[in-house]
Simulated assay, not measured.
Amino acid sequence: MIDSLKGSGLGVGPAYRVPGWSESAYYARKEQPKSARRLRDEQLMPLIQQVHAEYRAAPVAPGGSPAHCDARALSSPAAPSSG
């Protein structure tokens, strides 16, 4: 986000001053290598976007859910009986 603000002519200083962060914190964070979690998230994002797009494009069944959606599969499992 800060990089997009920099592209529009707003410097890092003002953008970080508003929430109370230091400008040096931006540069320190930017120089750190990406974490394994961040790298995995970046790998999964295209798949997540594809699934969302397919879900939005699915025909809607009466009741408002996509036709391929089975409400029974979405409900939580029944609690085990104690008897």
Rank of each mutant, 00 (worst) to 15 (best):
A25S: 06
P66A: 03
Q50F: 06
M1E: 08
E54W: 10
C69R: 02
K34R: 10
G63K: 01
V51A: 15
G9F: 04
E23C: 05
P14A: 13
G64F: 03
A73D: 12
Q32E: 14
Y26R: 03
S22G: 08
G9H: 09
Q49F: 04
L5Q: 06
A71S: 07
R72W: 03
C69I: 11
P19L: 05
G63P: 05
L39S: 06
S24C: 06
P59N: 00
G13M: 10
E54I: 00
P80E: 15
R40N: 09
E42R: 07
S8F: 12
V51P: 06
S82E: 15
G64W: 06
A15S: 12
Y16T: 10
P46H: 05
D70M: 04
G13A: 14
E42I: 01
P62Q: 09
S4A: 13
A36N: 04
P66V: 03
H68K: 02
E31H: 06
Q32L: 15
Q32R: 15
K34Y: 05
S24D: 11
G63F: 02
H68T: 08
P77K: 10
P33V: 01
R40L: 15
S81P: 14
L5I: 03
H68F: 09
Y26I: 04
R56P: 00
P77E: 09
G64Y: 02
S75G: 11
Q50T: 02
A79I: 07
H68G: 06
P66E: 02
S4E: 11
P59A: 06
G83H: 09
P62C: 00
E23W: 00
P46M: 10
E42N: 04
H52E: 05
S22K: 15
S8Q: 15
P59Q: 00
V12I: 12
R56I: 00
G11I: 07
S76K: 09
A58Q: 09
G13C: 14
